[in-house]
Design a protein around this nucleic acid. Sequence first.
DNA 1: CTGCATCCTCTTCGATACTG
DNA 2: CAGTATCGAAGAGGATGCAG
Lengths: 234, 234
Amino acid sequence: MSKHVQYGQYCPLAMSSEFLCTRWTMLVLRELLFGSSQFNDISRGVPRMSRTLLSSRLKELIEVGVLTREEGAGSLVHYRLTNAGKALGPVVMSMAGWGQEWLKIEPSVEDIDVGLLMWDIRRNIKPMPQLPNPFIVEFFLTDVPESKSQHWLISEDDKNDLCHIDHGFDVDVYIKVSAKKLTKVWMGWEDFATAIKDRELIIKGDEKYTRIAVKWLGQSSVAGIKKQPEENRI
Amino acid sequence: MSKHVQYGQYCPLAMSSEFLCTRWTMLVLRELLFGSSQFNDISRGVPRMSRTLLSSRLKELIEVGVLTREEGAGSLVHYRLTNAGKALGPVVMSMAGWGQEWLKIEPSVEDIDVGLLMWDIRRNIKPMPQLPNPFIVEFFLTDVPESKSQHWLISEDDKNDLCHIDHGFDVDVYIKVSAKKLTKVWMGWEDFATAIKDRELIIKGDEKYTRIAVKWLGQSSVAGIKKQPEENRI
DNA sequence: CTGCATCCTCTTCGATACTG
DNA sequence: CAGTATCGAAGAGGATGCAG
């Protein structure tokens, strides 16, 4: 099996996990650590993982004691990390950080799962008091098939939603960019302002909102980790 | 598969790896990080791993780029971590640390591989200027079959050797203890001085040497990590 | 929405025996 | 010392369809 293909994710944690970890377990933990608690939400964060296997992994984690399963109203179920599970945060971050620092990840950007990218971004959108409620951002991705090019991000009442069908939204900010460039900027591999200056990322809307875009858009949690110079990476 | 059986090791890294990691990979990295470079030395640190699989894992690590294979004189081969590989140290330690802090590990002490325990201790023996050269310690383990009860640790010229056959050594220090207690003390779960005071660990020899035993004997590298109170562990 | 049951395939791993 | 070759058993994982 060639490198960097198993998970189909640009996430450095996924890259590191490919040779270090039990298949999918780390990525499931990442989803849980980053706040997903419902089965389908977790599943969207690991789209190439079969639901059968996800189910089985969740059971393993419960068995070990890092996860609990709480049944809510109706058939709603919440998976929540125990204290021991939450304490795995630094372990997961150290592995992701190692990947960000040492691995050649850019090649993986050649085949991006845009649904996953948007799902990742959605998770990190930071609601800010200056923004309207709801706050709606339209993404137009220039380098993907038409059916996957449009995405609307709706941030309302501290809850972020994602949609890929046009419901005639009242869009506050419009962003046009290639999925490739968006990934690089979001991963911290390239600079947001530079991408705008080079017209590789076009952002339109009230200047009140666009000026602080880098703040509400957020970045991957490993974006801040310095990378080794290209020649040192593996 | 039940918990804590796969690797047959009391090491918290092994426990954590059982549900997080690709089989054996972390433990192989541990051996490399702690200084083993030859195939057979690595193999002794993971005695339940088949040599076939070890060979295959080493190749994977080389393929990924965290390890190199250098052929030396004769048929001597050295495996050495690359810089990227060495940088995995904190990842490995964070995982081991999590295990030490959060896992109920003591049950695993019920079935100790004494060869592995002694091999671990050998690796960490700290040569000290006050000690004679060679410095020879005899261990007598009270709770294991007679054939496995005697071990001699020879520290000479900054190189530590292990022997389980009596060659009529000129023993400097003699230690009599159960393998169980020795493990607990060495892992930092129980106190060395207390074990001596309670006569659970008997140490004989020149007081110059026995007085500072805790220093040259060393401890597991995770011994310093605080454990959660028993009721929080999983 | 949250899964489980089943079937079937592919991979992984260990045991054993052998080589330079 | 440092592995490799081969074989068979066991396990992991995906696809699909169904159910509360």
